[in-house]
Computed example of a mutant assay.
Amino acid sequence: MIGYVTIGVHDMAKAKAFYSELLADLGASVLMDMGRIAFIGKSMKEPLLGICVPWDEQDPAPGNGNMFAISAGSKEMADKLYHKAIELGASCEGKPGQRIPDMFYGAYVRDPDGNKMTFYVFR
């Protein structure tokens, strides 16, 4: 069910070096690097660790830059989960939509306690 988890960092170069080395024995490496965020894992079809400079460029303290993601399996299911979360009291953090052309579709919410999550599809 968990697709990836992101953690906020201060220095991407140091964080990529640290986690690449730390997780190499598990067969993980940087699989996608988009500058502000990089994903580390064994394959795009298995859970990943995302390291990022927080979107708002504020201090990457726990909770800022952190998010969990649920693999929805399809764009339709991502939309459904997004709308259900809103109905259950979540707030919008990014309406469903294509984020990376032909690669990533996501819908973002914060649960009633403020925890950020996304329902996503990688293709």
Rank of each mutant, 00 (worst) to 15 (best):
M1D: 11
G3H: 07
G3W: 00
V5Y: 13
V5L: 14
T6G: 14
T6W: 03
I7D: 04
G8R: 03
H10P: 06
M12R: 13
M12H: 13
M12G: 07
A13S: 15
A15E: 11
A15Y: 10
K16Y: 01
A17R: 05
A17H: 14
F18W: 10
F18S: 02
S20Q: 11
S20V: 04
S20R: 06
S20Y: 02
L22Q: 07
L22E: 01
A24M: 10
D25C: 10
D25Q: 11
L26F: 12
L26M: 15
A28W: 10
V30A: 12
L31R: 09
D33A: 15
D33Y: 05
M34D: 03
M34G: 15
M34Q: 04
M34E: 05
G35C: 07
G35N: 07
R36P: 05
R36L: 07
R36N: 14
R36A: 13
R36Y: 13
A38H: 02
A38G: 05
I40D: 00
G41N: 00
S43Q: 05
K45G: 15
E46A: 13
P47T: 08
P47W: 03
L48D: 01
L48T: 09
L49I: 06
G50L: 00
G50R: 02
I51R: 02
I51N: 00
V53D: 04
W55N: 05
W55G: 02
D56T: 07
D56I: 09
Q58S: 12
Q58D: 15
Q58L: 10
Q58Y: 03
D59T: 02
D59A: 01
P60W: 00
P60E: 03
A61V: 09
G63C: 08
G63D: 07
G63I: 04
N66R: 06
N66T: 12
F68E: 00
F68H: 07
A69I: 02
A69S: 08
I70K: 00
S71E: 14
S71P: 00
S71C: 10
A72Q: 04
A72D: 03
G73L: 03
S74T: 09
K75R: 15
K75S: 06
E76W: 04
E76D: 15
M77H: 06
M77Y: 09
M77Q: 04
D79A: 01
D79R: 03
D79M: 02
D79P: 04
K80L: 09
K80R: 15
H83V: 05
K84F: 08
E87I: 02
E87C: 04
E87A: 12
A90G: 03
A90F: 03
S91I: 13
S91A: 15
E93T: 07
E93Q: 14
E93C: 14
G94F: 11
K95D: 15
P96K: 03
P96A: 08
G97Q: 07
Q98C: 12
Q98H: 11
R99P: 01
R99D: 05
I100Y: 08
P101T: 06
P101A: 12
P101H: 14
P101I: 07
P101V: 04
D102V: 02
M103D: 12
M103P: 02
G106N: 07
A107P: 06
Y108S: 01
Y108W: 13
Y108E: 00
V109D: 00
V109W: 00
R110I: 10
P112T: 07
D113I: 11
D113Q: 12
G114V: 08
M117V: 12
F119H: 02
F119C: 00
Y120P: 01
Y120A: 09
F122L: 06
F122D: 01
R123N: 14
R123P: 13
